[in-house]
Write a protein that binds this DNA or RNA. Sequence first.
DNA 1: TCATTGATGCGTACATTGTTCACATGTTCC
DNA 2: GGAACATGTGAACAATGTACGCATCAATGA
Lengths: 205, 205
Amino acid sequence: MLKQSPVFERKAPSSYHHGNLQEALLNAGLELLERRGCAELALREVAREVGVSPAAVYRHYTSKEALLTAMAIEGFKRLTAVQIEPVSNAVVTPVRFADMGRAYVRFAVRNPALFRLMFSDQIDSSRDAALMFAIEPLTANIEDAVARLAGPRFSSAMRRKAALRAWSLVHGLSMLLIDGQLRIAHSEVDRMIEAVVDPNHALAI
Amino acid sequence: MLKQSPVFERKAPSSYHHGNLQEALLNAGLELLERRGCAELALREVAREVGVSPAAVYRHYTSKEALLTAMAIEGFKRLTAVQIEPVSNAVVTPVRFADMGRAYVRFAVRNPALFRLMFSDQIDSSRDAALMFAIEPLTANIEDAVARLAGPRFSSAMRRKAALRAWSLVHGLSMLLIDGQLRIAHSEVDRMIEAVVDPNHALAI
DNA sequence: TCATTGATGCGTACATTGTTCACATGTTCC
DNA sequence: GGAACATGTGAACAATGTACGCATCAATGA
């Protein structure tokens, strides 16, 4: 019998074993997350989506929180990827540094529920080593970019401060945007990101 | 018979009616929120805390979301109060403007669960008029302070941009701090707030 | 004074959720 | 082919949000 391809999330009706349930649950969870929102995501519904009993989930994740954690880890991987892209294999200029921030905000706006989950209290970053490991590059990339942009004239304390300012700015803008606090049209979101995340203040100290 | 004072949250054992259940539920909810966290707050537990049946809650709030919304509104009132304090009855200086931001972040750090609820997707600000009304001063205060600080040399577009930058910065720092993303000791939180929210960049445009 | 009425609380019930446990079904390897 | 193991199922449990009809109380007005 042919091995089931991972792209099919639903098992064939007659097959008892799924084939790649762990990954299927993760993908179904990520998809359902954006449809239902962060608060209404039900473990049972994820199982239903994949076509499997609720208890089967526990063979691959020890709890609902564990599944959410895996989803958040995937989110951090994706965010890290889009974040670092503007400065990979390139000199860090103020414009490219701002591009990093804009990519961060765009990721949040395009994946609001996932972004919210990643920074929610439903997952405990100090508890799960893999999660902590996935978060770490996010900070490291910012600090590294600051270092490459500022050069040796910045002390390590100045770098950390500039990085934290930059992170706070883009993170706050992301949150306010996906909360709908800023009453702006969808079409204006990009312009607002351009305006707020500005190369002129890249290294404000 | 004496009317029950609102300060007593639990009804006297023999009395059928509570006296001020609406406010008691709100207070109990706010207290439980910080103990249990934003995700684990149960309507039934709030009712238990007040000494009343779960169904009684529905005489005063149409749903759990309605209670959470009321709690969030109270949160916005308190946040607005501490936020505006540094510039009420005083000329707006860069230092006082920064103090506004610091008060914002301190509120978040001292009431992490409430702050998270206020900006969560569990309440829909575009749905509830009272909630929208409670949020509005938060933005207005920042923009007003920017206007008083910058004077007439700032266009209205520049004011909005500066206000949004300032809000994003303090909001992002607040979120990162209560998420525990910044691995810093409790004792260093205040120093970090001082460093990041800095009068020198009050009006960065 | 006392029945009426509206507001407010209760008990019960239901569907849904996260989780557990014993059991069923495949797969792998000797 | 059978033993050992991984992986899925079904039934069950407690807890949750919510709806319903009924109980209790306070105020009102004849």
